[in-house]
């Protein structure tokens, strides 16, 4: 029996609920096409700033028994070069979402103005990166006041949905509520947690070039599920779950907590880019066995 896997985020139709999380792959249009080919229901670009950024020195990623730590540092070619890279992004087979970063409120709007004709279906704004000075939590952006200002500015400038990506920090719900007040169309929950640190004891130095980095993968999953669960009660707009989803069961769990779609990043390390198709197949199996006809029927089930 075939299962209806479609889900809709603020009018954007996804063939299945899996999405590529921002920051993983996504440097090039071709890599986004490759994710779409491998089953990604939607893709989020690498975060784009007004000017080019080299990012932090390597190692930018390290793995450990419970997941991954990263401090990439928002390397990106800047808005003008990104405009060339992502031209006609609406023709890649799955909807593409533009992740925008900035330091001033006007920066976010300027990046959108530069890239608005590429064909992105929505904007995602990470107010929540835990490892880049001047941005996200290290730039004082993960506050209700900043969430409101940035959301409002983008809602005025753009005619596509604006998605705010929040941190799992304790003020998550208030930040999300402020974004909703300002007109946000959806919330992505959550960014990496921490920052954390792993020290190589043989050279007695932190492994990551930046010293510390955001924690993702299996360690983050229960935190992310709880965040989605809390937000589902607190806000009325769609929630995109993100954090440690590696298998079909993980996706089902995240959706039962209240997610309308799930983002996938760290799982690409353990399962390659085929993770999207594998997760969808595993979830389909489970839904079949349980007698569900459409995947959206399980959204928020843990609340009932």
């Amino acid at each position: 029996m075939s299962i209806n896997l479609q889900t809709t985020i603020s009018g954007i139709r996804l063939k299945n609920p899996t999405m590529l999380a921002s920051g993983v792959l996504g440097v090039t249009k071709a890599s986004l096409i490759n994710v779409a080919k491998n089953g990604g229901g939607a893709v989020v670009s690498k975060s784009i700033s007004k000017n080019p950024r080299q990012g932090h020195p390597a190692p930018i990623i390290t793995t450990y028994e419970a997941g991954m730590l990263n401090a990439v540092g928002y390397s990106n070619p800047g808005a003008l070069k990104a405009k060339e890279e992502f031209a006609n992004i609406d023709q890649i087979g799955s909807p593409a979402i533009l992740s925008i970063i900035g330091q001033e409120v006007e920066d976010f709007v300027e990046v959108w103005e530069t890239l608005k004709n590429c064909g992105f279906k929505a904007i995602e704004v990470p107010l929540s990166c835990p490892h880049t000075p001047g941005y996200g939590t290290m730039g004082g952006q993960h506050t209700p006041a900043m969430a409101e200002k940035i959301t409002r500015a983008l809602k005025q400038a753009a005619d596509v949905p604006v998605i705010i990506k929040v941190s799992p920090n304790e003020n998550m719900v208030t930040v999300a509520r402020a974004a909703v007040e300002a007109g946000a169309d959806a919330i992505t929950a959550v960014n990496t947690m921490g920052p954390g640190m792993i020290i190589n004891i043989d050279v007695h130095k932190p492994i990551l070039g930046f010293g510390m980095g955001g924690v993702s993968g299996a360690a983050l999953r229960p935190v992310a599920v709880r965040c989605v669960f809390d937000l589902y009660k607190a806000v009325k707009i769609p929630i995109i779950g993100c954090g440690g989803v590696t298998t079909g069961r993980d996706m089902i769990e995240m959706m039962m907590a209240g997610a309308i779609a799930v983002q996938i990043g760290t799982a690409i390390y353990s399962r390659t880019v085929q993770a999207f198709k594998l997760i969808v197949d595993e979830a389909t199996d489970w839904l079949n066995k349980q007698g569900y006809k459409k995947i959206t029927d399980i959204i928020g089930l843990a609340h009932r």
Binding site: V24, L25, G26, V27, T28, K29, A30, S31, L32, I33, N34, V35, K46, G55, A58, P59, I60, I61, T63, M68, V72, S75, G265, T266, I268, Y269, T272, V273
Partner: peptide
């Protein structure tokens, strides 16, 4: 190449999009 494990996408090649 920054990460070496196919995650960061720095070495994705056109038009295949693989690392």
């Amino acid at each position: 190449m920054k990460c070496g494990i196919g995650i960061c996408g720095s070495c994705a090649i056109d038009p295949l999009g693989i690392c």
